[in-house]
Design a protein around this nucleic acid. Structure first.
Lengths: 119, 119
DNA sequence: CTACTCGTACGATAGACATCGTAGTACGGC
DNA sequence: GCCGTACTACGATGTCTATCGTACGAGTAG
């Protein structure tokens, strides 16, 4: 639950505490196709992924922006690890606040992906 | 499934067919506090409600706008019944496309309402 | 027909947002 | 110390969105 960085990183990013996560912000964060895809990949991997792992059809500035939106909504957790920034889903917090919500959204996204033919 | 109006209303409103409902649009529609509240009341009532039943802190123009967003996202069904316009959740379509999603969102909204004290 | 109610349509406006490019900062390896 | 990599910060821009006010159309009651 602590976001301590064992590797000794000093740059800390501001995350909303669990109690301040708002449902509307989460839904808004997930309503963007790019961000929804990122969350899907994070959920599929189950572990932390670096920003550069994602191959999004936008520039790096825009990528940074989207990750920031996800972090400020409380959907993902970001920590610096050396020169890379690792991203992980805040599954514990989201499941604690809104049980079943994340899974429903992920299942819905998967279903829609199948329905629309794209994978 | 048909949206026929037995009362003989001739004014028909455009609704997206089930196959064209997009998850992102639904999430976006639900990410607005006013719209989420409307959906909550519709779900609580279980039946159709007129537009004027809702006492929203905005003008009628804005109310019309929000109902239109909900309708075009495929979240609600609107039919004219005389001078009133009745609104109903498209539960069947939403549950068919994204099983469990609507219930999770509603449960999450209820939980958050309790958590934030505003019942 | 007239008047009233309910909701729409249209135009305006201010704020939010997605996107980009460029310049800059932090970290690790040479 | 110097350079490359990874990501950020800032400013600009076009688009979308929430909001309003006013004018209009459709239906119902008198």
């Amino acid at each position: 639950m602590t976001i301590a960085a064992p590797t000794g990183s000093s740059r800390d990013l501001p995350h909303p505490p669990r109690a301040e996560i708002r449902l509307e912000a989460v839904l808004h964060a997930l309503s963007d196709p790019l961000r929804l895809q990122v969350v899907r990949e994070l959920a599929a991997d189950g572990d932390e992924l670096s920003c550069s792992h994602f191959d999004l059809p936008v520039t790096k500035s825009t990528t940074t922006h989207h990750f920031r939106v996800l972090r400020e909504a409380g959907v993902i957790r970001q920590i610096y690890r050396g020169t890379a920034k690792m991203n992980g889903l805040r599954r514990d917090d989201l499941d604690g606040l809104f049980p079943g919500l994340l899974d429903s959204v992920l299942a819905a996204a998967a279903r829609q992906a199948v329905r629309l033919g794209s994978r």
